[in-house]
Design a protein around this nucleic acid. Sequence first.
DNA 1: GGTGAAAGCTAATAGGG
DNA 2: CCCTATTAGCTTTCACC
Lengths: 152, 152
Amino acid sequence: MSAAAHLDEIDRILLRELQRDGRASYTALAEATGLSAPAVRQRVQRLRDEGVVQIVGVTDPMALGLPVMALIGVRTDADVHAVADRIGELSGVIYVVLTSGSFDLFVEVVCEKPAELLKILNDHVKRVPGVTRAEAFTYFGIHTHRFAWPGT
Amino acid sequence: MSAAAHLDEIDRILLRELQRDGRASYTALAEATGLSAPAVRQRVQRLRDEGVVQIVGVTDPMALGLPVMALIGVRTDADVHAVADRIGELSGVIYVVLTSGSFDLFVEVVCEKPAELLKILNDHVKRVPGVTRAEAFTYFGIHTHRFAWPGT
DNA sequence: GGTGAAAGCTAATAGGG
DNA sequence: CCCTATTAGCTTTCACC
């Protein structure tokens, strides 16, 4: 799912095109790469199977009626993976990363109302065993969200 | 792009299906909703045009040779939008959010080597006019990344 | 891994309720 | 807004390299 991969130039072209349009046809991808449609299909399938790329609909939380978003910085003195497992299962949690620095993990949360965020923070995140601190950074908005990365 | 939307039950079904598989055929989406294929196609196009959903290839940074990831918390005494504009243009920056709390914005960065992160942090982020503090939280890894959200 | 051609589906448009 | 019908184009398989 996240092992080092051996991507050649054609894989990178495919990834770049898919980052721009996840529904690009195999025919269009074939044109972009110079390969045949069956060949690109096989490659795209391999890239998806290997977890190199996920082709998904990324939704706008506002439009979905989830205007309250926050990053929550979490500190723990217990096993960080175990804590991440527990937090990752909470409703509203969409992203959990393990970090170094003054927080051990960051959690991204989306919800309908401020009261829900408070509940997630106080009744759920802070009550996970081993959590010693949880600080919420409420979003005023997403400024930049880029899918086309350097190296592609 | 992020205005409140009027999504009905069918839109939510479409979004849920696309969150699971961004390349789901209109035929499959038609089955899931009970509508005809042209009708779902029109809706999906509308949802994409309105920015409710972006169908994109989300790549694994590790696989792409970008194993160094970090969240950078930034504090500024200048206009936060202007600072976010500047930071959002930096190479390696894939996500910028405006927040409340002890940081004014968070920046997600991906790069090839630790030295690059240091450079982004010291030579670029910290040198943006108005930035008074920038603290990097280096990732040990992404634990959870969910696209299927509550409410869909 | 890749190709080319054939078969079956799907996407996209048009016309109408 | 949705449906049916149509056609062009796409996806997918297969035999082969």
